[in-house]
Design a protein around this nucleic acid. Structure first.
Lengths: 179, 179
DNA sequence: TCCCACATGTAAGTGGTTACATGATTTG
DNA sequence: CAAATCATGTAACCACTTACATGTGGGA
């Protein structure tokens, strides 16, 4: 089984979702397209790691709400505890451009940095909003490791800190662009 | 042309390298295996974006030192300036495990965090060493955007800051694991 | 003595993206 | 009146990984 399978299982371990919802829920830590998610959910269901309930809808397409099975939880647990995590892969075209930034003029360089800054700021605001929402629930148990929200909360906090740090770096880097 | 092509061109824009060396030089901002790099270099050479000089060696295998052509520089410049950078993709299995960390016991959770910490600390030391080396050259012009080392320097500084921030986050996160 | 660095490649397979197909309801 | 949201899927293609193949010299 591949990492995407475990990403799906780990979200469903919190609570049941449709394939459509799963994509959004995973976005923070694993990105995948529907064309990859839907066939994999079918496969995981055939392997009895998931079950689904078909919900007929009138004004919207019918949907399948997936739940993790006991077998699914066991498989996820086994993977989390015993499989070594492979080294992270990061593919960011901005970094490639940055390496070659000297080819451009200062105006272009500033534009490239500013685009990055805008994207990071948008992202930061989204994260802040989500964190505020989580923290506003007094008894959510966000810092209780047995809570189903614990991992998700840590993940948001991590991403927030990293985005903030990158924004500071961009501002530092831009100070070397003339004018 | 794909992003890997531009990653190769951007390294060769600094100076000529073999395929073997290119892998290492790119590691900071784009990861690829030899099995992907070598055939692509052949293709880029056929497209006249690169040329190579064949160096016969006795005690080691022969090698091809690749250089970027004028056409290659033009293609790279065009891409950097006019192509919008696609949104970054990050695939990090540790984050998947983190999401499901509540499934484990405190001991396992601590182990997973400590492994992450160790990896990040090793990385940080490597980056620090490289940065020290760069900064020890007084007239390298690291903060001069027309210098061929400018992009590389900014990239190292960025990675360093982000690794450091993640280490701080891990330490914060670990404080919620009992005992 | 065994592993690592050097050095380049092919073949097969998996993972991931893009394009296509369908269609009502809600929001700007 | 157009675009986004909800909702699921297939087919074709491209990007990337794993396994295989070859061979010398130097350091632990």
């Amino acid at each position: 089984m591949n990492a995407l399978s475990y990403a799906l299982l780990s979200v469903l371990n919190r609570k049941p979702f449709t394939g459509y919802e799963l994509k959004k829920m995973m976005e923070l830590f694993w990105q995948a397209k529907y064309s990859q998610i839907y066939p994999l959910l079918t496969k995981l269901e055939q392997d009895e790691l998931l079950t689904f309930e078909l919900i007929g809808q009138t004004s919207k397409p019918d949907k399948k709400i997936y739940s993790i099975t006991e077998k699914g939880v066991a498989a996820l647990k086994e993977w989390v505890i015993h499989e070594p995590a492979s080294t992270p892969v990061m593919r960011d075209e901005f970094l490639v451009k940055l390496y070659a930034i000297g080819l451009t003029d200062p105006e272009t360089a500033r534009r490239i940095f500013n685009e990055r800054l805008a994207a990071k700021n948008t992202n930061l605001a989204r994260l802040q909003k989500e964190i505020d929402l989580m923290e506003s629930q007094p008894d959510a148990g966000l810092t209780d490791m047995t809570s189903k929200l614990f991992g998700r909360y840590l993940l948001y906090k991590r991403k927030f800190r990293l985005e903030k740090e990158e924004i500071e770096w961009v501002n530092w880097a831009m100070s070397f662009i003339p004018q």
